[in-house]
Design a binder for these strands. Sequence first.
DNA 1: AAACTATTCAATTAATTACTTGAATAGTGA
DNA 2: TCACTATTCAAGTAATTAATTGAATAGTTT
Lengths: 219, 219
Amino acid sequence: MSEFKHNIFEQFARIGKALSNGNRLQMLEFLAQRERSVEELANVSGLSVANTSQHLQQLRQVGLVSSVKRGLKVFYRVSSDDVIELMRVMRCVAENHLAEVGHLVNTFLTVKDELEPLRREELMQRVEQGLVTVIDVRPAEEYAAGHLPGAVNIPPQELEQRLQLLDAGHEIVAYCRGAHCVYSYNAVQQLRERGFTASRLEDGFPEWKGAGYPVELSA
Amino acid sequence: MSEFKHNIFEQFARIGKALSNGNRLQMLEFLAQRERSVEELANVSGLSVANTSQHLQQLRQVGLVSSVKRGLKVFYRVSSDDVIELMRVMRCVAENHLAEVGHLVNTFLTVKDELEPLRREELMQRVEQGLVTVIDVRPAEEYAAGHLPGAVNIPPQELEQRLQLLDAGHEIVAYCRGAHCVYSYNAVQQLRERGFTASRLEDGFPEWKGAGYPVELSA
DNA sequence: AAACTATTCAATTAATTACTTGAATAGTGA
DNA sequence: TCACTATTCAAGTAATTAATTGAATAGTTT
């Protein structure tokens, strides 16, 4: 019994260990979007390919990610939505309990509260009523791999030049990769500076998908 | 930006680090019940007091637990319900993704499925309709610190002698500390052997409380 | 088959973590 | 005040983890 307990907590701890490294968490967050090759992951994390590979194997050993080899490349993906849920809860706990996180979020992403994020259900309603234009500010490839129904893809660098195409009467809601991705914050600021009514979606695409909301794919 | 990302993921990783040790997880699960002194925690974990104290300080540094000194003793407690939610999700991920955990749970707690755990909402309904007798199979002190409304406290070692006092017509639902606490499994088996209709509540008291369901205190 | 690419493996080093031991601190009761 | 208790602190050792390097593997292209 005590032996059992010991063992089972050791097993749970393996999940914690996998989540105990910033680089692995960044990779997971990146993978939450869609599958990625080792090279892509090495690029975002800034680690060597060999090192990245080893981190990925640690994540795979505890079942948080899985991999497929296609041609020369090996693609990793988050193994299921409950992993995304786990990261969401972890982020939530971090925000509530780690003074440093709130501080980072607040100082870096300008005043967070000012940007009033929109809740998912609320967005769904407003979209159904045709009240808002939803923009996806992620790179085109991520958009292609899945996006919110009816969302228009406007990667950050294109926002400036596509501003006049947006309906100034409509409220605009922007979203990006996740709660801590700066794209949507920047987009909202940019839009507000031009007089648009704009806000952010709470969290980002992975959380939307993870919560079971509808997802649209590009042709 | 990249600097920000790095920092924020490092911060999240601190939560993961705190959860990366089996002893700390066991302590957290134990604390999920109610506050405990360092000595009590050292006893359940089987570690030295000094070592236990150090683990607790790690948990406190990331805000997962807080402590109060009362007289000679220092009592630790889980700092809020979202920590319990975090552990629940972690356990869930572990069960879904770590073959070892499912195996341990299944082999140790006899055939898990056979015991059909009852969902919390379902239990609430049946209690309201007066259909079930709820028994709390934790030690008396844990029961005193909070239990399900109307639950009767029958510590494991007393079950045998108090069997005849239970209404054989009523369905009996047992619960204990949590999803991986063996008390309720044992109680249900014991009850079924005597011809009672018995089942377990899914999870345990901490999860019940964490989900915002009503809790009763002893006088 | 030979050259090439993406990834993994294996060996090494540096840094971090777990645990032990014994001393220090703060509060209690005689 | 003195002895006592519960906890924390500080220093040291053993074990684990992260990152680096270069070689090995599997699949592709020529």
